[in-house]
Design a protein around this nucleic acid. Structure first.
Lengths: 217, 217
DNA sequence: GTCTATAGCTTGATAGAC
DNA sequence: GTCTATCAAGCTATAGAC
């Protein structure tokens, strides 16, 4: 006889709502999706969204927060696992790799999540409420890592280099397909693995040029 | 006696609607703004939005297209004005400078426009319809310039480097204020001039590392 | 925890007078 | 070109039966 908590064959109602909300919010952002669409996509009744999550805004917050903790735990662990004197490439890899890994192999939920984060990272409306509150701890750990490599770099140079990294990373996770069109099909937005293989050296070179007084290190 | 066309003291109704729509769309994106909010902000009657621009979607397209032509004309001219053998820095400056210049000194309309472009560039929903159709010509001219500097670089390397550039540029124009918080007030998202002074060398170093087989050029 | 029913409001769009 | 008035549809949120 199976125990109680795995008697259900599919996921719980709350998880079904989160999954549907995540998918639809990633496609059309907060105001482009109604609770009706979400519950229809989830196959549950309209009232259940409010019962489980309260207001629409609270549901949106819940979607963002659901995956943030486990993702950031892994990123923090990767940053802490680095050697005393890591290379810039290792540092950037630790910061961006776990996100990539999940977008690539974590299933459609993680892919939607990455797209959603890409949009809120470029929207003043959500940056303070959701980006900063959920992702600034890892960001500070990364900045501290850069500081460890370049003890004499100016604060501003490190922060702005980090800002460019976030821009390159988020537009990559957005998978807009623009480069596919621009390159006449030679590049593919969904081919994250080969993109990151170029992104890390590209960004490392930028950090080096901005944060290292000479071109050593 | 003044001629007819400058008899009006303020801008036309259509322009007032475009200005209001641009400002509000930049703050809350397409679905976060109603036609009622736009016409209220513009100080005109609700029905006039539909009279002048048709559907809400057509108004949104009109907002994006209004400034695209003059902006891209200037960017194309800057790219064509370059010498036979421009540096990467000159090339990136020609591509990004006119946008920066208008966001900095073109008035609040251009600032809103830059924020709006930043959001649609990271949204799969609008990329094909609005980004590609309006901005791919300049993008192709820039890519051709990089090709001129690195004749033997792989297509993919150039396109992905360009993709990272667009990500860094758009998140900069978004002015989300995240780095302000992260740096505890040492950096300011609105200080575009000093950001670009760092962005161009940062990106040039990335292009060099990715597109130049050795580290010369 | 789930369902039905509905209140109360806002939305995009238009018809018709001026 | 502008204004008033309005329609049909969709929206969030909740109350109350089961």
């Amino acid at each position: 006889m199976v125990p109680n908590r795995i008697r259900k064959t599919s996921s719980s109602t709350a998880e079904r709502i989160l999954d549907a909300a995540e998918k639809l919010f990633a496609e059309a952002s907060y105001d482009g999706v109604s609770i009706r669409q979400i519950t229809r996509e989830a196959g549950v009744e309209l009232a259940l969204a409010n019962y489980h999550f309260g207001s629409k805004l609270d549901l949106f917050r819940a979607v963002v927060r659901r995956r943030a903790e486990s993702l950031n735990d892994q990123r923090m662990a990767a940053l802490e696992r680095l050697s005393d004197r890591p290379s810039l490439e290792e540092l950037i890899e630790a910061f961006t790799g776990p996100f990539l890994e999940r977008s690539l192999h974590g299933g459609p939920g993680w892919k939607s999540y990455a797209r959603l984060i890409a949009q809120i990272a470029n929207s003043p409306r959500w940056t303070h409420e959701l980006m900063s509150s959920e992702f600034d701890d890892v960001a500070n750990a990364f900045v501290a890592g850069v500081r460890g490599i370049y003890p004499h770099a100016a604060d501003e140079d490190i922060y702005w280099a980090f800002h460019f990294l976030v821009g390159a990373m988020t537009i990559t996770f957005a998978e807009t397909g623009r480069i596919d069109v621009l390159s006449a099909g030679r590049c593919h937005s969904t081919d994250l693995a080969t993109i990151i293989a170029r992104m890390i050296p590209f960004l490392a070179a930028g950090f080096r040029h901005l944060c290292a007084p000479d071109d050593d290190a």
